[in-house]
Design a protein around this nucleic acid. Sequence first.
DNA 1: CGTGGCCTTGAAGTAAATCAACACCAGTGG
DNA 2: CCACTGGTGTTGATTTACTTCAAGGCCACG
Lengths: 237, 237
Amino acid sequence: MDLSRFDGLPELEQACRGCASRDVALFRDLTDDELQRFGQMPIDDAEFSSGSVIYRQGDPGQAVFMIREGLVKLEQFLPDGGQRIVRLARGGSAIALEVLLGRDCEHQAVALKSTRACRIPRDVLLRIESETPRLHRQLMAFWHASVVEADTWLTQLSTGSARVRVARLLLQLAEGGEVFEILSREDIGAMLGITTETASRTVAEFRRAGVLRSAGVRRFSIDRAALTAVAGAPQPA
Amino acid sequence: MDLSRFDGLPELEQACRGCASRDVALFRDLTDDELQRFGQMPIDDAEFSSGSVIYRQGDPGQAVFMIREGLVKLEQFLPDGGQRIVRLARGGSAIALEVLLGRDCEHQAVALKSTRACRIPRDVLLRIESETPRLHRQLMAFWHASVVEADTWLTQLSTGSARVRVARLLLQLAEGGEVFEILSREDIGAMLGITTETASRTVAEFRRAGVLRSAGVRRFSIDRAALTAVAGAPQPA
DNA sequence: CGTGGCCTTGAAGTAAATCAACACCAGTGG
DNA sequence: CCACTGGTGTTGATTTACTTCAAGGCCACG
């Protein structure tokens, strides 16, 4: 994990410009003056390779992460030892927001592919926030995004048959591009609340049906229309 | 629906004092001075009888509601016409927070029992917020509560067998009191992602087993220990 | 050339959906 | 007062989808 430091304005500005989603980029509408000031602060650019743990459930909350690029799973451990993936975070989203409220990390965050993220220490973000009220709206937008994501997860990925759920998940993964990196069958299961075997069977079935075509190692392309038909209303009269 | 107006400080202060959860009461730590000012604002005390719709999905966002007492379901309609209850809100929680960001209402909110709520118009809350930065933390706490509730919903109520889910739901409903008002079988189904028949069968089974005892019309008391056993780890070695 | 980690597949068992009937009650109108 | 009605809950029989248990395949790795 390679941590390089921002030591001044140009780097921070550059960093924010580079964010995947300009709409939600936290420092998007700061003035040059403000950027200059905050540019001095210890905001790290962190890189996580696929599979590495960004933080663990229960960790004392030190920092918020703004994901710039990549894919991260947030999972929670169940009382009975199992675990469930409650959300995915992509470029443009913020994770570990709960540390702003002084809570410990409520999930375990694991990179699903090579991921770059801004690590913003709690104190820094709180200070910046108290000095620039305009950030509140942005911060709220991040909270909101988490809620929307959670609701979507429930209505789309935890409702209906396994076939339908897998179809909807694939459609989500393939948003913005025909080709995408598929997840392990185990992760698919943990996301959809089904067993690894069922996940495997369903993916295999889609491949045989041709709606899912191999496009390299672990990469696939989908037949969006066909999957949408599976995911949507079964037979609308 | 009876709407009475707060026209001055004493009423608003009184209202906030009366909130079920002091921890999250929005105006909890305003100074007298601030309360005085905001007391003039059009914040309504709204009452909703069981079954009445507080707002519909897609409604243009006009106001945020702070629930003071009662129980509200937030449901979303699925592409295929069905619907799923994504969260319950009780005294102390805030709903329709998305209107602060200018969004339309993202759920349909329906009172499940007689419910009292503060209706705070969007503009008013935004103005109050811009004038009193201390409110930001509180507002964040509300957002956070929504996320936590959503995550809990997923891990507790959408994972495991129908039996286990119903048990966990009953435990949640009975939090803070042995006796509670049970929901319709249809609502139970919509919350847990199971059919009304399965919900009915499971509830009936719990009644026969004596872990759920009738305590008046639609009211029940639970055997917490027995239900916890069902809800928890099945056989921990 | 093994070894371990995923993925796949099969066969059997089971939980839940589905289809269907009926009980119960409150409200309504004869 | 009773018969009718619609809503909700219960229950049964059947079918279906998913889990579970188990084995074997494929491939990257040492």
